[in-house]
């Protein structure tokens, strides 16, 4: 086989690639499948989720049955004297709420 033959194969491939395919409703089908318009204010959704997570967490800490333990833990964080059960509960709850809020806020 000659080198010219090689060029000829390349030319055939490129010509085949350039041959236009008629749209035949393809574009309309794609546009009809596009997902719904995204919010113009993506920060609003994130803010609402994180804000309600924080407020919900605060209310749970103050009004829930484990309230005193958590409030004590919160106080102990500011007067750090080593890790206490209340402080551990407070830190664990804060981490769980923060992670949940983050996951919800960043979810598509």
């Amino acid at each position: 086989m000659s080198e010219r033959n090689d060029d000829w194969i390349e030319r055939q491939l490129r010509e085949d690639a350039r041959r236009p395919l008629d749209d035949s409703g393809f574009t309309a089908a794609v546009v009809s499948r596009l997902p719904a318009r995204a919010s113009s204010y993506p920060w609003l959704r994130t803010g609402l989720i994180l804000g309600s997570t924080a407020i919900g967490g605060l209310l749970a800490a103050l009004l829930g049955p484990v309230g005193p333990l958590v409030v004590d833990g919160f106080r102990e964080i500011f007067n750090f004297r080593g890790m206490t059960p209340g402080m551990s509960a407070m830190i664990a709850m804060t981490v769980v709420l923060a992670v949940s809020g983050y996951v919800l806020a960043t979810e598509d």
Binding site: D16, A17, L21, T27, V30, A38
Partner: peptide, 21 residues
């Protein structure tokens, strides 16, 4: 502007090559 007409134009331009590939 989330312009769907602009996206449709992009699809029209590139559909032939992408579908051929």
């Amino acid at each position: 502007r989330d312009d769907r007409n602009a996206f449709a134009e992009l699809v029209r331009r590139h559909q032939s090559r992408v579908r051929t590939v």
